[in-house]
Design a protein around this nucleic acid. Structure first.
Lengths: 331, 331
DNA sequence: TTGTACGCGTTATCAT
DNA sequence: ATGATAACGCGTACAA
């Protein structure tokens, strides 16, 4: 394994000082075209390219952004990760994907992010508790943090998310107009106050329509299986006559699981016997096999916004964006 | 933004030299418990932790692994990424997720990976052409590379994959026993010779059963939509009597798209009118709405193997592992 | 066990 | 325009 060539070696080969070599690789540096060519020539033969690690140490900027994820069961994460990595890379930033779990929690990850001098940290839908910031090991001077695709009231940590109030308003309007009157809501495992937004808005908009009492189903996790189990439990303990007529799920993956159970295990027709609504508008929800009515977050704009904030082209502050109701056959 | 404390500052606060501070943070270094405690105390109050960037520069090891991905349409990527990040993190390694696309190709990404001194590069199912390694900017001394979840005959780049020959043998045996005799194969966009393995084995095992000629459908990409289009084109240009009776798709996501079209647009019953088989065994394929017969790769073992190779606990060499046929209702 | 000199490869700043 | 000095923060090798 041959070592990488250094600026010093290129300098010797080109017969100049190593600082001239640096200048040849610095856009807009003052250097004569002659020595510039000499350097590039030497660099070419020596196969030299600047060591980004050393550059980072000297400039205090790594051009690396950490993205925290704690929920890999939701297929919706993938297209967003695709956009995120693409736009970040377009800005010269690389994405460090960090799996937040029992063995590697937020505090652990944040300390690591700080030690590695990441330029920013994105909390991509993770269950982040504000108290975490109180950890005494986490001081100021940490990489700027952003919350993506989830509400957050954490001071100093701006959230870039879909407007939940508007979304639920549109959804409830749509369902009410369709004639549904006995609403149910399936929540995932999240217990954070900031994460209860969808449920809260859902209930309050129904209330505004004169309908009190949203039946709640609780899923253990955010996965199709968890959604299936929650639906199974509910349907098997509730007589057909007293069931909800529309079930809104906190996200699509829960909705698909619920829909499967309703149809295949209880022989229910969707939406006649039970209507189902999801959130995220994942690709498979739109397949004919499901035809899931859902709500699409403006992922592209959200990603653009967060990247603009990271690169300093936009003020870092909370922003909520309108999404889009995607009506299909399930409700 | 307060600056991070350095070892030097901690040294002054603790009344020792900075090298003693280093030792206090170096497992197994020779240092008295007394000064060790003094240092840790001072570090605690100053909120010091070693700068991993500087450490990397000095040790020539970043504890970062690049993972190249060029296909974000396949939901199968997500659970594997979850395992990969988890196991890597357990070994103290972080994952840099790199999106390979038109604007950021393999050569670009490899040069970057080298400049950043990544400890290893994982080609996670990307369409990597051997010629790429011929690029003169890519010399020896590059980070070790591995191919995950795809065959590869590239010298010096070991592949960790599911045994395609065994897999297709099991699949064809199963289909033949079920009575299917007119096999079709839907391939994705891949044109690499190394990627034609599944198709090749599929055809040759059918031939071994005395069945010549596998009908080929070509999808433009690897997505449900592409699978749907390919199926639509085929079904609308082929009379019912001369159609294949079983369609094997290169992966599940293509299969789901094809199945949707067959059922909803052509009114076909699966598997009576057309049987469908996929590959990867993604979660939604197992849902009652599809019941997709598929083949599961031993993702956990594959990830374990590649991580062991990266950490040097195992020789870096090609390894193929047996997977598992998952028979369901679609074939 | 502890302290010293030096190197890692780059950038910033000043002097020529 | 070019060269030189210092600094980034830590690790290794060696001496004390």
């Amino acid at each position: 394994m041959r070592k990488r060539a250094t600026a010093k070696e290129v300098a010797e080969a080109a017969g100049v000082s190593k600082w001239t070599v640096i200048r040849a690789f610095t856009p807009g540096a003052s250097i004569t075209e002659a020595s510039r060519q000499k350097v590039l020539q030497a660099a070419e033969t020596l196969n030299y390219s600047p060591n980004l690690l050393a550059r980072s140490l000297a400039t205090n900027t790594t051009h690396q952004v950490a993205v925290f994820v704690d929920d890999f069961a939701n297929p919706h994460k993938l297209p967003v990760l695709e956009m995120l990595t693409e736009r970040l890379q377009a800005e010269g930033l690389l994405t460090v994907l960090i799996n937040i779990n029992r063995h590697f929690d937020h505090v652990h990850a944040l300390i690591n992010a700080d030690q590695r001098q990441f330029d920013a940290v994105i909390l991509f839908g993770t269950a982040f508790r504000e108290e975490t910031l109180g950890d005494r090991r986490l001081g100021p001077g940490f990489p700027p943090m952003f919350v993506l695709a989830r509400d957050s009231q954490i001071p100093g940590v701006p959230a870039i998310a879909c407007n939940a109030e508007l979304a639920l308003s549109e959804i409830v309007d749509y369902l009410f107009d369709k004639g549904y009157r006995r609403p149910g809501f399936m929540a995932g495992a999240r217990t954070l106050s900031t994460a209860l937004g969808r449920r809260h808005h859902y209930a309050s908009f129904w209330r505004a329509k004169g309908i009190e009492g949203v039946t709640e189903l609780a899923a253990e996790r955010y996965s199709a299986q968890a959604g299936a189990e929650a639906a199974r439990t509910y349907l098997s303990t509730t007589a057909p006559g007293s069931r909800v007529d529309v079930l809104m799920c906190e996200n699509d993956i829960l909705a698909l699981g619920a829909m499967d159970v309703a149809r295949s295990e209880f022989g229910l027709e969707v939406p006649q016997d039970l209507a189902v609504v999801g959130f995220d508008n994942i690709e498979l929800g739109g397949a004919p096999a499901y035809g899931l009515t859902s709500y699409e977050q403006p992922a592209g704009e959200m990603v653009d916004a967060i990247v603009a904030m990271i690169t300093g082209k936009r003020d870092a502050e909370m922003v909520v964006m309108p999404g889009r109701l995607v009506p299909r056959s399930s409700a």
